Simulated scan of single mutants.
Amino acid sequence: MPRPCRLHPERVVEYPYPQELPAGLRTLVDEKDEEGEYDDDYVDTFMAPGWKVGGYADWSLTDLRPTPCPRCAGPTTLALVIASSERGTGRWQPTRTDGDPDDDPYEPTGVVVGRHGALRVFVCLSCPDVPFLLDQQ
């Protein structure tokens, strides 16, 4: 069961996983990473960690895997990420909001998915009656 905690939603801008970028843009990202242009790397800089609704999936553990709709074989959309941690690097740092020293800003819910990963829920927008797809990273 999740630990009671406060929800502080915020809208953020993030970008697709590098393997989902068009080839020319992916090459540019790779070059900038090698030059040290980003604080850590592309994923840590441009993809939000933690629980989120929508956005893009981080495929760091398995590389990009297709998630086609089981009915129409079309693309699915990331609807929800349930993550073990809110831990990030660079620009993604959680903060304590209530001053409680026992509050862990990196794991506020106490939910652990698999080996401390994330459960992702994908849906097909063309087939709303089809069950969602689950992926664990």
Results as ranks from 00 to 15, higher is better:
R3C: 05
P4V: 10
C5T: 12
C5E: 02
H8A: 11
H8P: 00
E10S: 13
P16V: 05
P16L: 07
P18G: 09
E20D: 15
E20A: 11
L21H: 07
P22V: 04
G24P: 04
L25R: 09
L28N: 06
G36P: 02
Y38S: 04
D40L: 09
D41Q: 03
Y42F: 15
V43H: 01
D44K: 10
T45H: 12
A48T: 13
A48F: 05
P49Y: 07
W51C: 10
W51Y: 10
K52V: 03
G55V: 10
S60G: 10
L64P: 00
P66L: 13
T67Q: 13
C69I: 01
P70R: 08
A73E: 13
T77N: 02
A79H: 12
A79P: 00
L80W: 06
S85G: 04
T89F: 15
R91H: 03
D100R: 12
D102Y: 10
P105R: 06
E107R: 15
P108Q: 12
G110I: 10
G110Y: 03
G110K: 10
V112N: 02
H116W: 09
G117K: 09
G117N: 08
V121M: 01
V123Q: 05
L125K: 12
D135Y: 14
Q136G: 02
Q137L: 04
